[in-house]
Simulated scan of single mutants.
Amino acid sequence: MSGVWAAFGWLTVFRVPGSASARGVLPWAPLVGLVLGALAALVGWLAARSASPLVGAVLAVALLAWLTRGLHLDGLADTADGLGPLRGRERALEVMRSGDVGPFGVATLVLALLLQVACLAQLLSLDGGWLAPVTAVVAARLAMSRCGLPGVPTAAGSSLGAAVAGTVSRAWLAACAVVVVLLVLGTALWLGDLGQGGRLVAAAALGLAAGELLHRRARARLGGVNGDVMGAAGEVTATATLLAAAVLLG
C-alpha cells in the first residue's frame, strides 16, 4: 500500500502516512484521479441542480485546484513559459525552475481554466453529464503515468523526474487504461446510455492524444520530462477530454 499512500500524498492535499518517497507515485495516479474526479463530479452535480450548471462547473474546477494544491496548474503555466518563447534548452529549463509566471504561462492558464469551466457547464446540464469530469480527471492521470514508462528521458536537473523514471510498466499502464474504459462503459450502461459511454471513451482518447503531443514536444525541446511537464500533460489531457466530450455529447 506504500505506493497508494505516496500517490495520494504527492498528488493531493491529503496528509497520509508513508508518502515521503515519490518513487511509487505514478503507477497509482489513475486511482487518485478516480477519487478526485468523483469528488469534483459530485460537487459539480449538486451545485448544478441547486444553482446552475455554470456554478457547478466553477466549483468543480475550483475543488480540483484545491485538492491538488494547484500543482498541475502551476506545471501547465511553467511548461507554457518554457516551451512558448524561442529560447534554448538550458534557458527554457531555467525559466521553468524560477517559479515566476510569464505572459505565456498566464495566458495558457487562464484560457485552459475558462475552457474547462465552459465545457463542464455544458456537460453538467446533460443527463449523466457528471461522468465526463470523472473520465477527464482519470485520463489526465493516465497521461501523467505515461511519463514514468521505461525509456522516457528526464530533463536535466529534475529530481522528481529522476525519482519516478521507469516506475510504470507498459503492461500496468495498459491494464489501467482497460479498467478505465470498462468503468466508463459500465457506468454508462448502468445509466441507460451505452452510447454516451462510447463517446466519453473516444473523448478520453482524443484528450490523451493531446497530452501525448505535449509530451513529445517537451521531450524534443527540454531533453526529457520533469514535474512541470507531468502536471502540464495532465491538464492538457483533462482540458482536451472535456472539450471533446462537450462536442461529442452536445
Score class of each variant (00 low, 15 high):
V25P: 15
H72L: 04
A220G: 04
P30S: 02
A62P: 12
V236I: 09
A38Y: 06
V184A: 10
L67R: 01
L185V: 13
V164D: 06
G99L: 06
W28N: 00
V179C: 08
G102W: 04
A92Q: 06
G231H: 10
T167I: 00
G9N: 09
G224E: 08
L182H: 01
V137K: 09
G227N: 01
V168C: 11
G99P: 03
A57R: 00
G211L: 02
R170S: 13
G75W: 11
A238Q: 15
D228M: 11
A233L: 12
M144F: 05
G3Y: 08
W172Q: 15
L185T: 02
A233T: 12
G192A: 07
D228I: 05
L183I: 10
V152D: 07
M144N: 03
L242W: 14
C119V: 04
E235K: 06
L76M: 03
P17N: 09
A80N: 15
T154H: 02
T68N: 10
V236P: 00
Q116R: 10
A162S: 08
L206P: 05
W45Y: 03
P17Q: 07
A143Q: 13
A232I: 04
A80H: 14
A155W: 04
L200V: 02
A233M: 13
R141S: 00
G33K: 06
A65E: 11
A48P: 01
V184R: 08
V178C: 13
L214Q: 01
A29D: 12
G37D: 08
A204N: 09
A204G: 14
P103T: 09
W10T: 06
D100T: 15
G33R: 09
L249S: 02
A22Q: 02
D228L: 05
L42Y: 00
P17G: 07
R146W: 13
T237R: 02
G102M: 03
G250H: 09
L64F: 12
S50P: 01
R69L: 10
R23Q: 05
R87V: 13
E94D: 12
A205G: 14
T239M: 11
L64H: 13
G195Y: 12
T12W: 14
V184D: 05
L183F: 11
A205M: 14
L142M: 06
P133W: 01
A7T: 08
L115S: 07
G75T: 07
V137E: 14
G234R: 13
A48N: 00
L131I: 08
G84T: 13
G105H: 01
E235W: 14
A203M: 13
G250S: 07
R221D: 10
F8P: 00
A121S: 15
L36A: 06
